[in-house]
């Protein structure tokens, strides 16, 4: 598999040539999702190639979380197709994954970061990070610990390895949660409003970590209310409204020159 960073360098080194198409990391096709009689997603499609940062914006209740959760099947799609790294997730007729092993493997390749951090409270930060590598992926403990410590140092939490999550600030917990997702060496990251539960003064430290990941060419789908940040890091922005993609495009076009009235109104309301 080509390193996405190579692809980027190719573009800058040889501006005259067309960039080779990067591999698709995540593809969502015609995704629909209903809760009972409420249709929350009405046919949503998106593609994230290796190294893409796809930002998803939209009002509360527009279906952003549901869409993200359908990608790793925390919610079961009512219709549509999810393709991860070229592999279509096998679904039963009710949308649940047909092959438990397959969905577990695919989930291991998608690092999810939740609004509420969701660190395991009965384990230290270090234990949180090595839990899945050691107990699910079978990585030797010493190796997993070394990797976890390096990642903790990277998100600025080296001294917190032995602390329990409850004794960390929200910003620290979210940085630890990001490190936990990175420990699985995922192909792509899924962020669901990673800073929405944080006090304003703690937002910056978490965004800095995400910015750092974007800069190293990590593939991610990022649901966010931080418009400035989305404009800065995204390669593609999707505006979701009432379960449909109302408008999408490169960040400068979408934020600088919104076409639909709804998006214009939304951007005015948030900032």
């Amino acid at each position: 598999m080509p390193d996405p960073r190579d692809a980027r360098e190719t573009v800058t080194d040889m501006p005259g040539q067309a960039a080779p198409a990067r591999d698709e990391a995540i593809r969502v096709e015609g995704l629909r999702k209903s809760f009972g009689r409420l249709e929350v997603l009405k046919g949503v499609s998106l593609t994230a190639r290796e190294g893409d940062v796809v930002a998803v914006i939209g009002g509360s209740g527009s279906g952003k979380s549901t869409m993200l959760r359908c990608i790793n099947f925390l919610e079961h799609p009512s219709a549509g197709r999810i393709v991860i790294g070229g592999e279509t997730v096998a679904m039963k007729s009710d949308g649940s994954p047909a092959d438990r092993r397959q969905i577990e493997r695919i989930r291991q390749s998608l690092g999810m970061v939740f609004q509420q951090f969701n660190l395991w409270t009965h384990r230290t930060i270090l234990e949180n990070l090595i839990e899945v590598p050691v107990h699910v992926l079978g990585v030797p403990r010493a190796e997993a610990v070394a990797r976890a410590e390096a990642l903790l140092a990277r998100v600025g939490l080296a001294e917190k390895a032995q602390s329990y999550p409850a004794f960390l600030s929200g910003g620290q917990q979210q940085r630890a949660a990001i490190a936990r997702a990175l420990c699985m060496a995922p192909r792509a990251m899924l962020f669901d409003e990673p800073t929405s539960a944080l006090d304003p003064e703690l937002v910056g430290e978490v965004l800095a970590v995400i910015r750092d990941l974007a800069a190293e060419g990590r593939t991610m789908v990022l649901v966010t209310h931080e418009m400035k940040f989305a404009r800065e890091v995204a390669s593609h922005v999707i505006y979701l409204h009432n379960g449909v993609i109302e408008e999408e495009g490169p960040p400068d076009a979408l934020f600088g020159n919104p076409q639909s009235d709804r998006l214009k109104q939304f951007l005015k309301s948030v900032g």
């Binding site: 438990r100 577990e104 999810m112 939740f114 969701n118 409270t121 899945v132 107990h135 997702a181």
Partner: peptide
């Protein structure tokens, strides 16, 4: 807390291990 169970599922933890750990 449901979120902590969801975090484990999202990381591909099999059901038996998830229940136990």
């Amino acid at each position: 807390p449901v979120g902590q169970i969801e975090a484990a599922r999202a990381m591909g933890m099999p059901p038996g291990l998830l229940a136990r750990r």
